[in-house]
Nucleic acid binder design. Structure first.
Lengths: 148, 148
DNA sequence: GTGATTTATCGGTATATACCGGCTTTATGA
DNA sequence: TCATAAAGCCGGTATATACCGATAAATCAC
């Protein structure tokens, strides 16, 4: 007679875990007025800039229209800037100085949340978790040993 | 020289995985006009009804105001009904007949998505994933063997 | 080279999510 | 009992998320 504590739906479990982690990281980053979705977006831009919205969306596996809207918030805060290049359809996004500064100051706050989370998993647990999340990713081909 | 394919941020990885799984399950459930968040909410209500919003929110680890708003969509669709009981502050939620019917018809669609997802993990992978997500859950006490 | 197609982005719409403050109702305590 | 505290919910606000259709620009096909 187990009281059925948490849902057996893999998706629901992932969503629940993502919500919880989001709140932890958001709380850690709150002093800088940035949340983890924004932090993640800033980091991706930092690594990929200059990059257009479509490529950035693919990189983050985010819907392009979602990315566009999320980006407006960063733009509004003066953290990013988008410019039209030779291809006048595309907008190339990059960090502003302010954006870089926010990222630098956010890094230790992110680190604290990451360390606290990692401690709950243990080093092996984190590796295992990443492997499992990779296995879930349908954009990754399944390894030969599993496929079929 | 590894090209840094996916973020090392545990939170970002969880969010990405949750987004992807959500899209898979949503696509599977789409023929019934229900998404996985709604399906999950309906299932929780089915198991817990009659239940008030606060308890249901705690059960799902959802913010109570979020739950209240999500519930309005179900109400609007005629799938749930909320009634005030003796305690006039609390609203007790339960499925309607229509809601039960939607759940019954959605079950095989959910099952298909769940099976496809589970197949990517393997039986052991799913067990391992659930254990890791439990370990992340700060509302669960850490087992003696891990704590400190 | 011009018409068809594809690509990049945007806007409308709907939903999910959370924080905060306020209101109503219940419980508590002196 | 009556003042105070606590509980339960709602509304405002902000953001994240995705689908669809529209628009503009580049590319392709002939």
């Amino acid at each position: 007679m187990k009281p059925e504590t948490s849902p057996a739906c893999i998706c629901a479990r992932l969503r629940r875990a993502a919500r919880a982690a989001t709140q932890d990281y958001d709380a850690a980053l709150a002093p800088l007025g940035v949340n983890v979705a924004q932090y993640s977006l800033l980091r991706h831009i930092q690594r990929a800039a200059p990059v257009n919205l479509t490529d950035l969306a693919a990189l983050m596996q985010l819907d392009a229209s979602t990315l566009g809207r999320n980006l407006r918030v960063l733009d509004k805060n003066g953290w990013t800037r988008a410019a039209t290049g030779r291809d006048r359809r595309a907008r190339h996004v990059a960090l502003t100085d302010t954006g870089r500064d926010v990222l630098n100051r956010a890094a230790p706050l992110w680190r604290a949340a990451q360390d606290a989370t990692a401690a709950r998993l243990g080093a092996e647990g984190q590796t295992a978790l990443f492997a499992l999340l990779d296995a879930l990713d349908t954009s990754n081909p399944q390894p030969e040993s599993i496929r079929r």
